[in-house]
């Protein structure tokens, strides 16, 4: 490093390499991401957000919601589960056998072995795959988030802090527009100790007109008598966006199989 040129060349090479690696290469690889299909189905994934929800993404951005909420489900691993679906000709033996076996939280080999044992006794089984990890146990999603979940979003807002819960699947967890709007207007009306600030400025308190849009607020949070709380367009868009957050389809790169409801 005896000359200015030497320093310049070293810095240029270092930054140029990093630029090529983390700006150019991901643009070429990920920038060409295409719509994929849901596992074992021909449904396309993801789908564009409907109009109001696409506008709501911008409300989410403008109010910095991503400062406290992530949209990334994390997954530690996968586990197999063997489910008895048919008892065959000797139901008592098969069910006793199944009761004595460990059928959840298995590896692939253990699941196959258990399935074979039951099949040898004449029973029928299905083997299911599910994700494991704290986020999945909390019910925030069934699988980890993948790049394609964010395909249509600009800006993408994966978030970096969980001062509030993960929102990857909030549209599935709370699929009710009034719930979303009430929660935005008065978070404490729904979660008693919520640290989320109220977004009352996205709502209008006006003389009651009996409008269908008026929020159904619990006692203690309702507007004074003769008044009603109605969402502004921004609040409606934000609620539509939150309802559209549902990135849970099983994919080739993030598989799981849904258990049939008994």
């Amino acid at each position: 490093m005896k000359t200015g040129i030497g320093v310049f060349v070293a810095a240029f090479a270092a930054l140029g390499a990093s630029w090529a690696g983390f700006v150019l290469a991901p643009s070429l690889q990920l920038g060409g991401t295409k719509v994929t299909t849901v596992l074992n189905s021909t449904d396309e994934y993801p789908v564009q957000r409907p109009g109001e929800a696409a506008l709501g993404l911008q409300v989410y951005r403008a109010n910095g919601c991503a400062a406290c909420h992530t949209q990334q489900v994390q997954q530690d691993g996968t586990a197999f589960e063997v489910v008895l679906t048919g008892a065959g000709k000797d139901p008592v033996t098969v069910s006793n056998l199944a009761a004595g076996l460990k059928l959840t939280g298995l590896t692939k080999e253990a699941a196959d072995a258990a399935a074979k044992t039951i099949a040898d006794a004449g029973g029928k089984t299905e083997t299911h795959l599910s994700g494991t990890g704290a986020d999945i146990s909390r019910g925030w999603g069934s699988r980890h988030s993948v790049a394609v979940d964010f395909l249509y979003d600009a800006p993408v807002q994966p978030g970096s802090l969980r001062a509030g819960p993960d929102l990857t699947n909030i549209g599935a967890r709370a699929a009710d527009a009034n719930w979303q709007l009430v929660h935005l207007y008065a978070p404490k009306a729904i979660v008693k100790d919520s640290t989320m600030p109220s977004f009352a400025y996205l709502f209008e308190v006006r003389a009651a007109t009996g409008s269908a849009e008026a929020l159904k607020l619990p006692a203690g949070f309702a507007a004074p008598a003769g008044f009603e709380v109605v969402p502004t367009p921004a609040a409606r868009h934000l609620a539509a966006y939150l309802l559209s957050l549902h990135a849970d389809a099983p994919l080739y790169e993030a598989p799981y199989s849904q258990l049939a409801k008994p």
Binding site: L15, V23, S27, L30, T33, V148, P155, V156, P158
Partner: peptide
């Protein structure tokens, strides 16, 4: 022309680190 999807986040992480 903003790049698609997570490329945006990767570029932002690259920038923030640098």
């Amino acid at each position: 022309h903003v790049p698609r999807g997570m490329v945006q986040a990767v570029i932002d992480w690259w920038f923030a680190n640098n």
